[in-house]
Amino acid sequence: MKTSKDCVNQNYLDFVAEISPKTNEKRSLLRAFWVGGFICSIGQGLRYFFQEVVGLTGDELASYVSIVLIFLGSLLTGLGVYDRIGKYAGGGSIVPITGFANSVVSPAMEFKTEGYIYGTAAKMFTVAGPIIVFGVSASVLVGLIYFVIYRIF
């Protein structure tokens, strides 16, 4: 039986690649840069606010900034605005922590029609699941390696 590999017609694929429209490079990079920079600046503003006005420091300060940004990202997703920002900014809105929030909320909203448990709750991590899996695994691995290093040296 034929596999997908047997089907490859390289001449055709090369021609398709040649004539396919390309993303406007400069424009997409510029948009990613300014939107990404802007979202990070909001984070910095929040940081100053929590530091100066509320008087938080250290890890707590960093966590509150993340929490507020995640709140904003989730809210904008709920209002149906974040995907528009995403279409405009690409990487500029995917990579900031607000983009993580967007990737959690969007499938959860979408699958609500299949119920609040197997729809919303179960499908919540279809996009963001790998981030939690790899993030937590990496941190445990790093912790274990450093634990061994600290004990030996």
Partner: peptide
């Protein structure tokens, strides 16, 4: 902040433009 944040996001955009990575993979 603007420059560093913007630069990191620009790298992500470069990845999107040149590889066909989906947003989930880029986040990972």
């Amino acid at each position: 902040v603007f420059a560093v944040g913007g630069a990191i996001c620009t790298v992500a955009q470069l990845l999107i433009n040149y590889t066909k990575l989906t947003s989930g993979k880029i986040l990972v």
